[in-house]
Structures are given as C-alpha cells and as structure tokens.
Design a protein around this nucleic acid. Sequence first.
RNA 1: UCCGGAGUAGCUCAAUUGGCAGAGCGGGUGGCUGUUAACUACUAGGCUGGGGGUUCAAGUCCCUCCUCCGGAGCCA
Length: 446
Amino acid sequence: MCCAPAHFEKKGYSMAIDRVFVEDVGKFDGQVITLKGWLYNKRSSGKIWFLLLRDGTGVIQGVVSGNDVSPEVFDLYERLTQESSIIITGQVHGDKRAPGGYELWVKDVRIIQTADDFPITPKEHGTAFLMERRHLWIRSRRQNAILKIRHEIIKAIRDYFDSKKFTLVDAPIFTPAACEGTTTLFETDYFGEKAYLTQSGQLYMEAAAMAFGKVYCFGPTFRAEKSKTRRHLTEFWMVEPEVAYADLNDIMGLAEELIEFIVTRVLENRLELLKILERDLSKLETIKRPFPRIHYDEAAAILKGADTEFVYGSDFGGADETLISNNFDRPVMVYQYPADVKAFYMKNNPDDPSKALCVDVLAPEGYGEIIGGGQREDDLDTLKAKIQKQNLPEEAFDWYLDLRKYGSVPHGGFGLGIERTVGWICGLEHVRETIPFPRLMHRIYP
RNA sequence: UCCGGAGUAGCUCAAUUGGCAGAGCGGGUGGCUGUUAACUACUAGGCUGGGGGUUCAAGUCCCUCCUCCGGAGCCA
C-alpha cells in the first residue's frame, strides 16, 4: 500500500500503460511522440543511421540524421547494442519503404541501459541454443507473434464458453489419485502423503456439470510420460468443457463450433501475426462447419493398404492420424473407438458395446489429436464394474460414484489441448514454441 | 525405456581415402546520407563434448561416458 506510484493515486491511471506504443503510431502521423522499448537492430550509413525499436507491440525504424539531432545523440550509435533499453522521441512519418508503413524521424535518444553482448543475434541459431535462452528468445518477433496468437486463442475459448453461459469452475492441481489410471503421474509429497499433479480436470468437471449444468475448466495439466516428440510437453494447458444432459452428438457439435470460432477469431484479429509466421492462410480459411464425422471403422478402412503397423482394434499412432487427416481439408472427428483402448469413464455404445461413445478431433496437416472426449458412463453399476476391470482403487472414486447415485444424467465433454491447437493454427513444427516456458522431458530450465 | 542422428571459433556450419583446422555471421578497428538479417576493407578468435585405444599421423577409425535432437510406445 505504501509503494503505489504517485500517478496511480493522483490521476487513477498509469502513464506507463497509456503511453504510445508502436502498434498505435499510425494514429500520430506527423506528430512528435516518445516510444519506450529496446533496440532490435541498427544500421549505419555514415552521416545517417537507423535503429529498430521494439516495444512488445511491434517494431519501428527510427531514422537518425546528423542534421536533426545533437552530435551527442548522433554519436550514441557506438554505444547502442542489441537489446539496450532506450527511449526515443521523434516525428511519426508515413513511408512506403517502412515495413509497418511508418517510421520515426528521431530527435532524441536516451539509453536506459546498454545491453552487454545479447546472445541471440539476428542470424540463425539452433533450437537447443535458443531453448536454453528461452527467457530472451521470447523477445524475438516470431516467438512474440506465436505467444500473442496463443493469447488470442485462449481469449477466444473463454469468450466462446462465456457467451454460451458456461460457468468457469477451476479444477484442483493436486489430486489424490490417478484420474485415468493409465498414464504416468508426477508424484509429490503432500504433508507426508502422496499426491499427484493433475492429468485432467474432467472428473471434477463432471461433478461441476451436475451443479451448474454447463461448465469448463482451464488450466495446466501434467503428464510424466517420457515422450520426446513434437507433439508432447510434460506440462501443458487444456480447456475441458462438460455438459449435463448431453450425448455424443451434442459433444461433437460443441467441439466443431468451438474450433470454428477459434480459427475465425484468429483470422479476424491476428492476421498480421500469421503473416509474420508465413502461415498458409488458405489452410485456415477452410475451417468451417460442418466437420467430417467418421466412425472408427471408416478411419481404419482409410489405413487399409497404407504403410502402417496399425491393427484393427488398437488406437491410432501419430503417423496413422496424419494419414487419416490428410483426406480432409478441415478437422476430422473420429468417433466410437474400441472401448478397450479408452478410459474407464467412457460410456459404451448400447447398440455395439465393443465401442465407446467417444470422439477424437484430428487437426489437418498432420497436427494430430487436438480434442479427445465423449459421453460419460452414467450408470453406477456399469461404472463400478469398469473401475474393477481396470484394477483402479474403488475407494479413491467414491466421490465420483456419488455423481451416479444422486441424479445421474447422460453427460459428456472433451479436453482441448491448447499447445497443439496453437501449433496447428500457427503452422509450427513443434509444440515447444507454443508455450512461454515449455517443460519437456529433458528441459526444466529456464 | 527402445531405435536413429548430432556434438568443430560466441552462433550456424564445412573439412575428399586417416595427411597443415576453414567459411559466413557475431566481436574489434575503419569507410559510406535511405539502410531493411544493409553493404564494404582489415583484424582477433580453436583442449574439434569428456575419458581411453588403434596409427608414423585421428575432427575423421574403435570402445566408453555425457549432453542435445528426432522418432516409437503413451497421450492432448
């Protein structure tokens, strides 16, 4: 309370927040403005030199001429190193030669701090080198664009569910036992007892759906699997809606509407960033409902004769998912996998008990599964039998079974992986660039 | 855990059959009034991941360990 800057108290707003940013310079054409940021790059041609200032919202070129500035300012060129923090004042000038349409005719430059040998130069670097310096890498234009698109995607997801009157219900991070029992969990000491980091908020969302009708949670998820692929992180973010009185068809409708909404929003609001990433926009513009819906058997038929080790009755591998999705120009919804390869809480198809009422959404262009979900088992005895069959500790699921004792209804939901969705929309090679500080099997630094 | 690949200058990479360790960028010193990863001249910079072995001679071949990358399984 003692430390609030004076201007907060006096005026009720912050000059630091409301100052001019690069993304807004177009509104000030011809005016003299001050920009605060960091030196992205510089070039000299002798009696005139150029600086690129970035401030997180964009990059603008400043033109420094010996005719317009004092000799002291002109000579700052020597001391300006990459990523030095600087405040520049100058006149906004529209110029076709400028990448952003505007440049600044510099009148004054103030160096706040001279950076010492910034390690990430404007030239090429390997991913290992860059990941080791992820805290600095996120300053680069490309990483900046990806993380802003991530923000837009997250905001779109929240806006979608909020507009549909879903209630946000946060699931716990510490959990007493496996939600699914199949995958490896991160174990932690909880006051002398074992606890685990959540691998899904879904079971809690089922409880919440019975309380609020339509709910979603959004948070981090942890998987201790030793997966080293372009699609895996040990810590990733997932949004998990759950709806009471919903069946598999309802869930598929929800999934395709959400995905269409997200892609449309990114195309509307973040086109410039997609261009920085050189994303093939035509691949996103086709993402319109309805999405193809194919039965597991149809997906299996696509793989027949293809070069794959897939055997009917098993789950699809990463290569199989690519083979399937390559047949479509939008996400494909594969439904009713064999019940044996799916989690215990999935409801079986009453007309074909060997299949689960589940759906996976496979993104186009080989980006793989971005959604997994379906209808949940709502019958108490069937659920108990499944828990026993998979050798899960029944006592750990007492509370979950209560949901089937007190007003059980058909219901369902899904989990959407944020990083895979970002990777797909941005057209990236690897999900590690879709999260600010990725956690991978061999990386927990920085 | 298994399969494959890589490790050489600060960074990205070359180096023929085992035969003098190289380039671009970055750094340093200069030149240039419209540059867009600016251009340009000169210059410094190396325990070739660690250890062991074969050989007259190893960046190169063999053994071993470490680290990283990609993939499989599993999953979002």
